[in-house]
Design a protein around this nucleic acid. Structure first.
Length: 504
RNA sequence: GGUCCCGUGGCCGAGUGGUCAGGCAGAGGUCUGCAAAACCUUAUACAGCGGUUCGAAUCCGCUCGGGACCUCCA
């Protein structure tokens, strides 16, 4: 039996995963900033960590999955900036911050549902935890690692670095950060460039503001995750995940402020997924290549040749290891679309084969086959799925294994296989597909809902066509098939004389 | 400029020092009234140059190319 190993960004190596308090596991993932519509880039971390969550649960852990919603900060609705400048009265038109946040939170949830991501157990909002953030800041101030300037509070990174290791996670060296020539706005209040804001004083026009011991303002960009993860998962907790772009400064800041506040580093395993790129470039506002989820699913984007089903995107993402960059292209997604269909059709077939097995036979004793026999190979491939998942969630290898099983399944199901598979092996195949494809990787069939009505109508057409074929009236039979093809239904004459269909 | 990562066949992508990745697209075949699907067979590969080794796509060095982070960012 293999054991789960996780690549820890902090130590830059794979480590055996041992939860602090088994069977409980605390999992915190940095959630989206809901100031705009969710995009393709959001798909990667949340699908990645959905699989992490699913797999940990499968291993028997009781996971508390916390994923925040960042709804504090300075928000403007996308595309409205220019408008705002023009009309003074636009303030009336402007969405209430809460309204904006709710709108995009709902859209985000919708997107996650499309991807079949399980809900986190707790989805805390930054605005809902102002008190926790303030008290954590007070704590850091009391310990002497932060200072107040002008109604804002900054974390003293230089002092921190003198007593604690700083920059370990992101490989940063403080002196180099301080030597950076880059000039940024709003830096003048800081004692040092590397310091970061825990609390910011709100300028008069700022619409999101809360009372604090330092005046009206809003929390800094890093404190929410520390305050909320600790509140719900304690300290330290097991796994903290997020995109690689959050390594610095976000997660580095989290480590520093939590270390001061709680006296120890906050997280035991740091996990970071790599970025999605488009034509080799990271997707980002500044590159003007952001594809929103609504655009992705509808195909309404200049870079898209067609709509892509959420499951195709999920599958495509899981076909790459989460720590590799994933380049986006129409060609690759179309290949994924076909591949997923092939995988799913084999799974369907397998379900039918498995239900055809009488109950008693399914419980046949475990047989050991030599590894060079067909059944032995099947056992090996199924077992390797477990190994692959244990090897830092190598979903790509799991899928490759399942693909290798597809021809075997198809051949057996279509009676094209010389030898018969034993009921136990068929059951093993069915269980493996169900477990990995559906339960752990969270994939769902892309086939459109075939309602009973559609099914009945199709049966009728198939019956008419069958009669036509018996009369050798191929004009009629081909016409039925071609017309159905045109509306997206593919008829297939199976070897045994039956007719099956798939939706495209 | 600093830090780090990557470079696998037409495209996408796993991977370990010595044996097949896999998918999509090709090619040939079987089956079929014809299709489709399925099955079988099959070409093309590890950026370049050195080094370590009995042996390297896999380890080391250099070169070239690409990317990420250093700023909100998934």
């Amino acid at each position: 039996m293999s054991v789960l190993t996780i690549y820890n960004s902090l130590t830059r190596q794979k480590e055996v995963f041992e939860p602090l308090h088994p069977p409980y596991v605390g999992l915190y993932v940095c959630g989206p900033t809901v100031s705009g519509e969710s995009h393709l880039g959001h798909a990667r971390p949340y699908i990645t960590f959905d699989v992490v969550y699913r797999y940990l649960r499968h291993l028997g852990y009781q996971v508390r999955y916390v994923r925040n919603i960042t709804d504090a900060g300075h928000f403007e609705e996308e595309g409205r900036e220019a408008e705002d400048k023009i009309a003074r009265g636009a303030i009336l038109e402007k969405l209430e911050p809460m309204e904006l946040v709710q709108k995009y939170t709902r859209l985000f949830h919708w997107g996650m549902q499309q991807f079949n991501c399980l809900d986190p157990n707790i989805e805390p909002t930054a605005t809902g935890h102002i008190i926790e953030q303030i008290s954590m800041i007070e704590d850091i101030l009391a310990k002497g690692y932060a200072y107040v300037v002008n109604g804002s509070v900054y974390f003293d990174v230089v002092k921190y670095a003198a007593h604690y290791p700083y920059g370990q996670l992101s490989g940063r060296v403080l002196d180099e950060l301080l030597a950076t020539t880059r000039e940024l706005e709003g830096q003048e209040e800081k004692r040092n460039k590397a310091d970061f804001a825990l609390w910011k004083k709100a300028p008069p026009q700022h619409i999101m503001r809360w009372k604090s011991p330092w005046g009206e303002g809003f929390p800094g960009w890093h404190i929410e995750c520390s305050a909320m993860s600790t509140k719900y998962l304690g300290h330290p907790f097991d796994i903290h995940g997020g995109g690689m772009d959050l390594l610095f400064p976000h997660h580095e800041c989290e480590i520093a402020q939590s270390t001061i506040a709680f006296g120890e580093p906050p997280v035991r395993y740091w996990m970071h997924n790599n970025m999605i790129t488009i034509n080799g470039r990271k997707m980002g506002k500044s590159y003007h290549n952001v594809i929103k989820l609504t655009e992705l699913f509808s195909g309404q984007h200049p870079l898209l040749e067609q709509p892509y089903h959420p499951m195709v995107v999920r599958f495509y993402i899981l076909q790459t290891h989460y720590r590799s960059t994933l380049d986006f292209s129409n060609e690759a997604l179309q290949a994924a679309e076909r591949g997923l269909q092939r995988l799913w059709e084999a799974f369907d077939l397998l379900q039918k084969m498995a239900t055809a097995i009488p109950d008693g036979q399914a419980l046949a004793p475990e047989e050991k086959f030599s590894s060079n026999s067909l059944e032995g190979r099947i056992q090996q491939l199924c077992a390797d799925c477990r190994e692959a998942m244990d090897d830092d969630f190598n979903t790509a290898r799991v899928l490759a294994n399942l693909f290798e099983l597809v021809p075997i399944v198809n051949a057996a199901g279509h009676h094209q296989l010389a030898e018969q598979l034993s009921p136990a092996t068929i059951k093993l195949l069915q269980q493996s597909f169900s477990l990995y494809l559906s339960e752990i990787l969270g994939l769902q069939p892309i086939q459109k809902q075939d309602s009973q009505l559609v099914e009945a109508l199709l049966e009728l057409l198939i019956e008419i066509r069958r009669e036509a074929r018996l009369r050798k009236d191929y004009a009629t039979s081909d016409r039925i098939r071609q017309q159905l093809q045109r509306i997206g239904i593919q008829l297939k004459d199976e070897k045994d004389g039956s007719v099956t269909y798939t939706f495209q």
